[in-house]
Design a protein around this nucleic acid. Sequence first.
DNA 1: TAGATTGTTAATCGATTAACAATC
DNA 2: TAGATTGTTAATCGATTAACAATC
Lengths: 213, 213
Amino acid sequence: METKKQIVSSTPEPTIRRLPMYLSYLKNFLSDGREYISAPHIASDLRIDATTRTKDLAYIGISGKPKIGYSVPVLINYLEEFLGYNRNDLAFLVGAGNLGTALLKYEGFKNTGLRIVAAFDNDTRKIGGKIGGVEILPIDKLRNMIERMHIAIGIITTPEGVAQSIADMMIGWGIKAIWNFTPAIIKAPEGIFVENTSIYSNLAVIINKIQNQ
Amino acid sequence: METKKQIVSSTPEPTIRRLPMYLSYLKNFLSDGREYISAPHIASDLRIDATTRTKDLAYIGISGKPKIGYSVPVLINYLEEFLGYNRNDLAFLVGAGNLGTALLKYEGFKNTGLRIVAAFDNDTRKIGGKIGGVEILPIDKLRNMIERMHIAIGIITTPEGVAQSIADMMIGWGIKAIWNFTPAIIKAPEGIFVENTSIYSNLAVIINKIQNQ
DNA sequence: TAGATTGTTAATCGATTAACAATC
DNA sequence: TAGATTGTTAATCGATTAACAATC
């Protein structure tokens, strides 16, 4: 028998990145009181091809009605469910500097399923205190806490130089996904997912556009 | 004569996003004192296909020598030049909240060509003060400042609800590129470039991976 | 020279866009 | 019914990967 390449029919990453955009848009739309919306309507507002949008919604298992469109509240429910906003995904944050502080205080996470349950730093002036309602603990408590609480997500907002060593600790103690806000390139074994929010990459795209305009 | 589709042979965006990664990696490599590096070497460290990497470097106009590899210092120079780190690109930031403050204090920009020359807010307690060495001005000074200083880049770190109106002001007064850190979907006319650093999109990818693992 | 490494050309893969049939 | 809108199938586009020739 021939070995058939396994088809991992998962949602494409570009689609996943667009979903929060739809959600944000639809919530605004709903506050206008209208209940149904059509694909061309969303598409022209968001500057996304109507077919792309239809496919995106089909991926998460929602379909519309010809002539009428999609029910906005239903769409919002499906999106929130798919994006895990009804779950609680616990996370630790390491590095309570400027960016770490901004994330700890970020109101936007309240809409989502992400809960930052503790933060870690090596600055004794911060340890014991709270930022955005989250306790700041010493780094050497990290191991015990990850293991005890079965935390799956680790957020790294440390200086670039120590990012890899923090990641290694997190991975060793059971973290499944790392959200890296430093410019460091995190090396991780197969099965550990690393998502980079790279300020430099975003800046590079902007500067490139400015230069070539 | 047939109209030939104009070929805008510009560097692909995925390539541009990878360039800062190469730069960061090479700077670390250089501090080890070695002068030449080969494509397979970089590739295995960064987990990027060697051919992809070779092409990326070819785009910015640098080639290596068979058997020897690429000269690291030359590579760094080319990358910094291409990324505009030797230029000064002036930017304004609007919204000196948690995230805005983090960006104003961000040491990493010192390596780049970006200079945030002023910040704007409507909080009278912040106005007149400085954050990260940058003066905080009232929003109503924005127009005059953009026009006078020919600022090209506007950074938005306001609450989601006012992002579009700030963008409209910026665009009306001559800003060419907007770096949007809010979840808002910024509508802008043709020719104005909008780059989104979307916390929600990044989070969505992480949550999706966690759910399906 | 021999072999490691680059660089180019072709093949593959995946996402977006286009065309059109189905349906309320 | 007629027409607006969805949903599916095919075509296009662009990036990644593979194969192999060129070169120091």
